[in-house]
Design a protein around this nucleic acid. Sequence first.
RNA 1: GCCUCAUUAGCUCAGUUGGUUAGAGCGACGGACUGUUAAUCCGCAGGUCCCAGGUUCGAGUCCUGGAUGGGGCGCCA
Length: 506
Amino acid sequence: MKTYIKDLSTQQDSVVTLQGWVQNKRESKGLIFLILRDGSGFCQCIVDLGNIGEEKFASISALGQESSITLTGKVVADTRQIGGFEIHVDSVDIIQNCTDYPIANKEHGIEFLMDQRHLWLRSKRQWAIMRVRNQVIFAIHRFFQKEGFIQMDAPIFTGNAAEGTTDLFETDFYGQPAYLSQSGQLYGEAMAMAMGKIYTFGPTFRSEKSKTRRHLSEFWMIEPEMAFHDIFDNMDCIEDFVRFVVSETVANCKMELELLERDTASLEKTANPFVRLTYDAAVAIIKGEEKVEGKTTIEVLEADLIETKSQIEGLKKDIAEREALIAAGGMKKGKVNFNLNTIDKNKNQIKQLEEDERNIPQWLESAKNFTYGEDFGGSDETVLTRMFDVPVMVYDWPHEIKAFYLKRNPENPKFARGVDMLAPEGYGEVVGGGERETNEELLIEKINEHKLPMDVFEWYLDLRRFGSVPHAGFGLGLERLLAWICKLPHVRETIPFPRMYGRLKP
RNA sequence: GCCUCAUUAGCUCAGUUGGUUAGAGCGACGGACUGUUAAUCCGCAGGUCCCAGGUUCGAGUCCUGGAUGGGGCGCCA
């Protein structure tokens, strides 16, 4: 039977066989410390010259990083180790000895790592992120399945742009132009009329030339659609759903989130009620006309700017101190290296903080001058969510700026019943959705207003002609949700092989 | 599409007002050390300073254009 590192705790003092890769190696005379990884975890394995013989010892000593091996040894408890266990090795079979593995155990730049993505996935942080992704996907399915939703797959080739706004990838479909799907929602609506409650879970494609930390050209979206649900039922569903996925992930990914140094306290706050604001109320807060807990956005942002500046000063001081210590001499080499590396890290942090320093005044300006009636920009979202520590749902948007299929507020037709959920900690829009228009005349009017080809929406109008009912739904961006849960600076690390502007390989 | 910052060894980065033969650490390689946790110590090798022009006696450094990348805006999940 095969043994995996994650199961070592059940095998204490017995002899097991592990198969994996040499993640790191330290050597001393007569002893080799191998850090083995097998996909399920990491474990230190000790090779003793006296146990294994000189010839074998030399061949193990020559193993490069990421060499593949099979080893057999005794499981010994050792509190110093990550998993609490280590292996005292009896024998090693080398499957492949490899050398010159490109990714070293140190800081690397993002461009280099993205070029090495196929190998980078083996690194600890990436390993942890991919495991969280797996748990999040599983929790999403559990939520909808327990709530009686039917999973459906929407087509990926479409003949039209669903909302007519975003840039799509064009392909050739037997001589006809076809577009890669930017949303499965319209098809979801059809299926919801058949099944009651459905959800799609599939890839989505947008050819926007966006170079930001929250855009991908290819990403995964979850789109539930519910018959007999209005905007408020929809918000209840969003809230229950996000709360469930976050709490299940926190419960099932303790080790992974710890490895990512993710403070889960802020995730646990999703147990509290989410903030619900109309567009009007949100705009008043963004513009600084309305206070939240006694403070305006302008005050909070100005304080953030001062804080950023003092952090930069603090880091510069820290660097100067370390440089002076090194220059003074007499420091051990290991300590010098540690300090040099810390200086590098601090410098990188300063670069990021300096970007914030440049951005915050722009955001402040943009928030102050926000024009009522416009859609929120990324910075407006950041500014708004900065004021709360739970997700914020903004609903009832000016209908002109929202998609054609959103229902008007019957009490005030100026507003469409769309809802966006903004994640805290600056992550912004993670969910977009709303109640769907059921009035056929209004829909036709909207399709014309948006200058969309009527013939491709004929089938969609049929949904209003035959047993039309109030219904609502939303779309959740998996990678954006993951970036927030893992507190990553960019969505590109949340998907195994990101496709984005300027990145098609590997 | 616009704005902004960057590009120097395999990797992460220094490089002074423009001045001789461009540096460090890590990694790789060779050696030492029997419990290491980014091991440590000694040694050794490693360069199209992103590309193309220009200014200058002289350019890694200054100027112009381009390429690539980071970030922001717009657009969006």
